[in-house]
Design a protein around this nucleic acid. Structure first.
Length: 538
RNA sequence: GCGCCCGUAGCUCAGCGGAUCAGAGUAUUGGCCUCCGAAGCCAAGGGUCGUGGGUUCGAAUCCCGCCGGGCGCGCCA
């Protein structure tokens, strides 16, 4: 049993004695930030003081006395009534052996114990190169998928191509116009056409009949999908499923959705259009389903698509999208409800991310040569490298605006958090290279010799990793991992500077090497979750 | 106007199922390499947590108003 569970179990037992009527109360066990407050603490006495009409400190005292002896010293009472636990050194250090035994599995749940889940992200229209917003989605989505996998879930990474809408027509017309030698703004240039340089490339390589819009469309979509794939590959992101919007029409799934709504009595005709009574489900107004010109509005295929997700058996679905699409959240959920297909009310989950601003040389960069009006993922990777892009884009809460400082990310120095973490990993590798012994033997190393507070602090942090990962997975919040890694790297660098690892005393040397190996393993495991490499040399 | 999100140190941001929560990085200043990688470490200064109320023994954290910013409010996707 891990130390935290031991503390929880002991507290539960104490509570049963002191306050049997609250024996099943929720016991919050925290890890105090200040080492002086021990390894764990609980505010349970403060929580129960009122109900029991007791003085919180006295109650805490009584609970503390009732705690069965275990893997920790006698609990202390502090502040208004906190109970602080200090682990015995051996208990605390045991995590080192655990990490070395579990290796890349440390921090992961038993595989195959979870559910079938899906993360949908990027889902860029095939109308141009991927921009930085897609990059943020790719970094977030892939990390969220990895986090869910770490909890034992069977995860499908899915990319949805809107290859059937009006924007594709514009793409085809733009390519056609370029192929005819027209430039943006010329007579005959399509309204709201795509002006980026990449359209010229596509037009140049298009060898088909210029008058055949269908051919131009197919060629352009294929071309851009290939290009996006190349970028995603460079970013290290792989999808399991590419789902084409056009297939929903081909399979009749879009029409089926409209039919079901109508059969369920959820629609009505007005002004020559077909409306869905979304207000029945809390929307602020009803929505048009079929326009007076006969076409569907975009949210019909969206609902049809999400219905397939449900029918494919995904218990949990996370959609990663920009906040500019947040109005679709309600509509997709409501549209699914109106189908009476047994879809739960708040399904699916959404992670909405804010915009990314790219700063370089103190100014915002808005243009890219290739795409014209926006900075591409490829630009970013070319400028700062894949690891830095990944780490940066994942290091903020999704819903906060993100300012990507290109100059900072380029620096190979202490100012750059990516290198800071990777450097910690490389540093351990360097020590092991010098030592030259067998790391495998360290898994069962004796650790009694580790007596410094810095060593205790590292052990505490290592012990915290699994719950950090679990929380990040539940909350779909990869930035927790980035912050954890920074903290672990900081603790390690500090330790490294203060104490020598390769000392003459063999016992101490072995124990310290084991600790370092555990740090390295945990850094590598964390970096892998956010798709960043753990280099042995830099 | 309505809805959602955001407002924490000069700058970029964590913390927000209340207490042991005023934090990190960066910038500034001052130290540390005959010693396992100085891409590192140690130390100092810096914030009435946008603002005004409310709930609570206790609020950056929960509730309401206001101010400031973002995004949505199409028979566009």
């Amino acid at each position: 049993m891990d130390p935290k569970s031991q503390v929880e179990t002991a507290l539960r037992a104490a509570l049963a004695k002191v306050a049997p009527e609250h024996a099943d109360a929720h016991i919050l066990v925290e890890r105090p930030k200040q080492a002086g407050h021990g390894d764990f603490s609980t505010n349970i006495a403060l929580q129960l003081a009122k109900a029991l009409k007791r003085n919180p400190r006295e109650l805490a005292q009584e609970i503390a006395r009732a705690v069965p002896a275990g893997a920790f010293d006698t609990p202390e009472i502090a502040g208004p009534g906190f109970i602080n636990f200090r682990l015995r050194s051996g208990t605390r250090l045991a995590v080192v052996n655990r990490v070395l035994k579990e290796k890349e599995r440390y921090g992961r749940a038993q595989p195959g114990t979870g559910e079938k889940v899906q993360v949908e992200f990027v889902s860029a229209n095939p109308t141009g190169p991927l921009h930085v917003g897609h990059g943020r989605q790719a970094a977030l989505g892939d990390a969220i998928a990895a986090l869910l996998e770490s909890q034992g879930h069977k995860v499908t990474r899915e990319f949805y191509y809107n290859d059937a809408g009006a924007q594709i027509d514009k793409l085809a017309w733009s390519v056609q116009a370029r192929a005819r030698g027209k430039n943006p703004g010329d007579q005959g240039w399509p309204e709201e056409g795509y002006a980026g340089e990449y359209i010229e490339d596509i037009a140049r390589e298009f060898k088909g009949d210029v008058d055949d819009v269908e051919a131009a469309r197919r060629f352009a979509v294929d071309y851009l999908r290939r290009e996006q794939d190349v970028d995603l590959q460079a970013f290290g992101v792989k999808f399991d499923v590419y789902y084409l919007e056009s297939s929903l029409y081909a399979d009749g799934k879009v029409d089926a959705v409209v039919k079901t709504w109508t059969a369920n009595g959820k629609t009505y005709e007005k002004d020559g259009a077909l409306w869905l009574r979304t207000t029945e489900y809390g929307d602020d107004k009803d929505r048009v389903v079929r326009k007076s010109d006969g076409g569907n509005t975009y949210f019909v295929p969206d609902v049809a698509y999400h219905l397939t997700k449900w029918q494919r058996g995904f218990k949990r679905v996370v959609d990663v999208q920009g906040t500019d699409h947040h109005s679709t959240v309600t509509r997709v959920r409501v549209g699914l409800q109106a189908l009476n297909a047994g879809v739960p009310k708040g399904w699916p989950d959404y992670v909405l991310h804010s915009i990314v601003k790219v700063m370089r040389g103190g100014e915002e960069v808005k243009m890219s040569k290739r795409a014209g009006s926006y900075v591409t993922v490829r630009d970013l990777i070319d400028w700062v490298g894949r690891d830095a892009v990944r780490f940066f884009l994942v290091s903020r809460k999704a819903d906060s605006e993100f300012i990507f400082d290109v100059d900072l990310a380029r620096q190979k120095s202490d100012e750059n958090p990516v290198y800071y973490v990777q450097y910690a990993h490389a540093r351990v590798c360097s020590v092991f290279a010098q030592w030259g012994g067998s790391v495998d033997k360290l898994a069962s190393a004796q650790l009694d010799a580790l007596k410094h507070e810095r060593e205790a602090a590292l052990a505490r942090l290592l012990d915290e990793f699994p719950e950090t990962v679990a929380k990040a997975a539940t909350e779909a919040a990869p930035h927790d991992i980035a912050f954890y890694l920074r903290e672990l790297a900081a603790q390690f660098h500090s330790y490294y500077n203060a104490e020598r690892i390769l000392v003459d005393d063999e016992n101490l040397r072995t124990a310290r090497l084991a600790l370092c190996a555990a740090v390295r393993q945990t850094l590598a495991n964390g970096l892998s979750l956010i798709g960043v490499s753990a280099p042995e040399k830099m």
